[in-house]
Design a protein around this nucleic acid. Structure first.
Lengths: 226, 226
DNA sequence: TTCATACTTCGATCCTAATCGAAGCATTAA
DNA sequence: TTAATGCTTCGATTAGGATCGAAGTATGAA
């Protein structure tokens, strides 16, 4: 009964509303300062500072110094995955926040999940990649096929640049809104970056919503058909 | 920022040590009474009662009346999956309980995860099933192939009996000790039950450990080779 | 009916942890 | 150096919730 990992510590870290707000804000993938996070969490800077310390000690956050600012990000992809799976569970159980604003549909359509594309479009992308055998999926282990390599090159992504230490190229991540998987990993990250630089999509400042341009939408459908 | 599901509620439910102990005890898959759970959590019956009420309201637990006993189980497979993924995360981040007892190696080898086999043997089983194409895996979606159906029949499992409303036949579940997936779903449950009834394995009373008999171990290796 | 078991509710206590004001430290700009 | 910004530490307060004793309810056994 006293065996194994300690799940209570993790739960209590996420269980405080202020800390949950901080984590949700960072799930956007952007690095944020303590002051910005304080505003997100609606608590003072002092309180935020103490929360950030605890989250960092728990291995959930990463702190980067830059000038007189300190930027915080989620520690790694695992944190993002964990948060998304908790979001999925909470959504299914009806643990919804009071205010499900007008942004909700847009959020379900396309949003940032830490550093890759989530929502219906994210799910469609992974489905399409698997359907056309650009990605071969066995269980949660996804691998880029030979034709998949050609495919990403066509999009202007260097396949060699995807190989990074301690990060998988392809990884599946459960989507809370669609209850299906979308693509994470270095490929997921690079694809989203590419959508930005190709002008297909833009980040909605201050939220996790990704807005596709009309042209970008057409291109996306052409490259990732259902 | 105030959009989407409420993750803090979920976190705080799991974040209390007593409640975490209760959930861990139920992860064994056994239905336990309030009195038994009180012993597991090392708190009085009154306190346990209040915890159980909260966990049930949060959709994590299910309560079944039977005579003057009230049996508690995890609400569904999703709860088990969520807990295992939190366990995996906590293990990776080094959030381990003080006492990692002598049972730890046995626990890593073969244990019960809610209602199916987990640990190294659980992972080996799923690997083998996929390798010999008894199960076809695309992403987290696993399906039993035609030869897989013959295979389970050979083991004395009726494939028709696996079809249950609102439960997938095959499902992958992340393993906290092996950091790989093992098999959940009705098939996972039935296979473990079959191991028991064939006399291959026995439950270690009072823990989640599954002990294979020498004969059972040989049979297991023969049926699920690496 | 009477008693026992299993659990819940109530009420009081106690303790942790979240919160914020004030002061301190660090970095940059002028 | 001085001033300003960004963040941390300290200390005191407060609130929420975990805890348990005592009493109450429900079910079953004798």
């Amino acid at each position: 009964m006293k065996e194994g990992p300690d799940i209570a510590l993790l739960g209590s870290l996420i269980g405080d509303p202020a800390r949950a707000n901080i984590l949700m804000a960072l799930l956007s993938g952007k690095a944020l300062t303590a002051t910005e996070l304080a505003a997100e969490a609606s608590v003072t800077l002092q309180t935020t500072s103490s929360h950030l310390k605890k989250l960092e000690a728990g291995g959930l956050l990463h702190r980067r110094k830059q000038g007189r600012h300190k930027y915080f990000t989620l520690a790694d992809d695992d944190v993002g995955s964990l948060l998304e799976s908790m979001l999925g569970f909470a959504a299914k159980k009806g643990h919804t926040r009071v205010r499900t604003g007008p942004k909700d549909p847009a959020l379900r359509n396309a949003r940032v999940c830490y550093n890759h594309l989530a929502g219906e479009m994210g799910v469609q992308m992974l489905d399409s990649l698997i359907r056309y055998e650009h990605i071969i999926g066995v269980d949660t282990e996804l691998t880029l096929s030979d034709q998949g390599i050609s495919f990403v090159e066509l999009l202007g992504i260097d396949p060699e640049a995807l190989k990074k230490p301690r990060r998988p190229v392809c990884k599946s991540c459960l989507d809370w809104s669609a209850r299906r998987s979308h693509l994470a990993g270095t490929l997921g990250t690079e694809l989203l970056n590419r959508f930005y630089s190709l002008g297909w999509a833009k980040r909605d400042e201050g939220s996790r919503i990704v807005t596709f341009t009309p042209k970008g939408s057409t291109q996306f459908q052409a490259h990732f058909p259902i």
